[in-house]
Every structure is written in C-alpha cells, then in structure tokens.
Simulated assay, not measured.
Amino acid sequence: MTTTSSRWALVTGASAGIGEAFARELAARGASLVVTARREERLAKLAAELAGKHPGLRVETIAADLADPKAPEALCADIERRGIAIDILINNAGYGVPGHYLSQPWQRHADFIQVLMTAPCELAYRLLPGMQQRRYGRIANIASLAGHVPGSAGHTMYAASKAYLIKFSQSLALENRQFGVNVCAVCPGFTYSEFHDVTGSRPLVSKMPKWMWMTSEEVAREGWDATERGEIVRVTGRVNRFIKGLIKVLPDKVGLALVQKRSKDFRVQDPH
C-alpha cells in the first residue's frame, strides 16, 4: 500500500498533457481522483479508462473553466457536496499566450493570470485547512524551467507566472511542513503535450533537439516522487537541471542576452 491509497486527489487541467499524466500516475498508486478541465467529454473518457484499469478506483469528473473567478470556490463546494476530502492537489491547469504583450487584449492576460496564478492559490487556500487538520497533504504546483531562467520576448507573462508559482510554493512549503503537508513546485522543460499546439509554437519547437524533451509521463512520475519526498522545488530531467544550474552562475546580462538570442526558436513573437 502506498501513501496515496485511500486518498483523494484533485487534478486540474486533467484532460491532456501533464495533468492527464498525473491523474494516471496517482491512479496507479491507489489514489481516488477528482479530475477537472473545460472539456467534459475528455474527462469522461479518462474517468472510464482509469476506472476500468483500476477496479474499485473512484473517479469523479467536474467540468470547470478556471478563467472564471468564481470557479475555484464553486469547484471546492461541489467536491464538498460529494462528501470528498481532498488530500492531494495537483495545480496543473495552464496555457501560454503567444505574441508580444500589447498584441493581445487585456482580458486575455487577465484570464491568464486567473488560471495560472490566482486559481492555484485559491484552491490551495480552500483545501489546506482540511489537509492541516488531517495532518496529511500534498500540493504539486506545476511551474516550469521558464520560471528559473530570464524572461523571453513573446509569451510575456508565462515565465513571470511560473516564477511566481515557484516562490509561492517555497513559502507555502515552509509554512506547512509541521502539519505533514508537502508542497512542491514541479518545473518541467520542453514536454510532449498539446501545449505547443494551442500556443501555435509547434512548428518552432519541433526543431528543438529530441534530447531536450521529456514525456508527460516522465514529468508526472518524477514530479510526484519529488513531492512525496518533501522536495520543495523539482526541476525535472537532467538536461533541465543542467540548464538551470548554468543560468544560475551566469551574470544576469549574459543570461538575458542568451535568452534574447534563442527565444525566437521557441517563443511565438507575434500571433499568427
């Protein structure tokens, strides 16, 4: 029996990519699941597959759009009405906004902030009291290697939002260790998923060498193991850890110049 057996996990953005991989990883380790995303049909398909693969596993689906400021509270209320106590929170929902800052309407940026920054914080705020009371909790905030390196031109707010999640996770982890709650910022680099299709950067990133990529399953496995061990920040993959270490020792001016030179290879500068 693993520590996740008989525990309930909430996974946001579970309809694809890293979120779906986390749902599969946790189900394999015995956790029951509440999976949420906007695409209800994908959630239903995932729930049926996991329930069939793991007899006795409970999987609840809740369609929600975390760009709605009321969604986190409504989601937690729905979970409570179903008599479920969440011990594991995977804050994964996210996406990128392509192009330069002024190329997009403000509302699109506001929605981005709501999904990638406000919603994870609110979900943690609403679910932490129960975790503290039960003296067990796991929160994995899916950040990014981008949060450790200088910001790039294009996708202006993405790295900033991930750096925010990293710092938030660090403080939250130190505040909650005494309650048996582990908080980890999981920081993947380039990962095979739908992310780059949605942002329109697939033609660019497809030119990146294969050794820079990880699968969603590898990220989820390594990220969850790190969360269980009590690591506060986990950059997944040796290549990504090397990049983080290199950037850390470079002078800021050199790091910025390097990112400026290479950003056109992986960031959409203006929307199509």
Rank of each mutant, 00 (worst) to 15 (best):
L258S: 11
K162V: 09
T12W: 06
M208V: 15
A31Q: 09
T36R: 00
S15P: 05
E175P: 04
E80I: 02
G94R: 08
D225I: 12
L123Q: 14
A185P: 04
K264Q: 14
A140L: 15
I139T: 08
K248I: 01
E228I: 11
A14M: 00
V268K: 11
K162M: 08
V34C: 08
G237F: 05
I243P: 11
E20W: 02
L43F: 00
I166N: 02
G130D: 05
M157N: 14
V35D: 00
G230L: 01
M1V: 11
V183R: 03
E231C: 05
E73H: 14
I86Y: 05
K261I: 05
E222W: 03
G13P: 02
M214V: 05
R134H: 09
V34N: 11
H148C: 03
G56I: 03
V115L: 09
I88M: 12
W224Q: 06
L256E: 10
Y136R: 03
D111Q: 15
P150Y: 05
A110V: 11
V35K: 00
S171D: 13
A124M: 06
R38P: 00
P251Y: 07
C187H: 04
K167H: 06
G56K: 04
W8P: 09
R134P: 04
K264E: 13
T3V: 14
Y192L: 13
R108K: 15
D252S: 10
T4F: 13
W224R: 10
G56N: 01
V198G: 09
C184L: 12
I113K: 01
R7P: 03
T156M: 06
T227F: 00
A27R: 11
G147W: 04
G13Q: 00
T12G: 04
G154F: 04
W106S: 13
Y125C: 08
R267T: 09
N91L: 12
F195N: 12
E217R: 13
Q133I: 01
A28G: 15
R135H: 10
P72M: 14
E218A: 15
V254Q: 04
G94Y: 08
L102W: 15
A48R: 11
A159F: 03
S144R: 06
G94V: 10
I88W: 08
E20V: 07
T4L: 13
G151Q: 09
L26R: 09
R24S: 14
A71R: 11
D78G: 04
G245E: 06
G99T: 12
K261T: 12
I79W: 10
L246A: 15
D65W: 01
A27V: 07
R267L: 12
R234Q: 13
G223D: 08
T156H: 11
F168Q: 06
K70V: 06
R134L: 02
T156N: 10
L165T: 01
L66V: 04
I86K: 07
H196E: 14
F168K: 03
K45A: 15
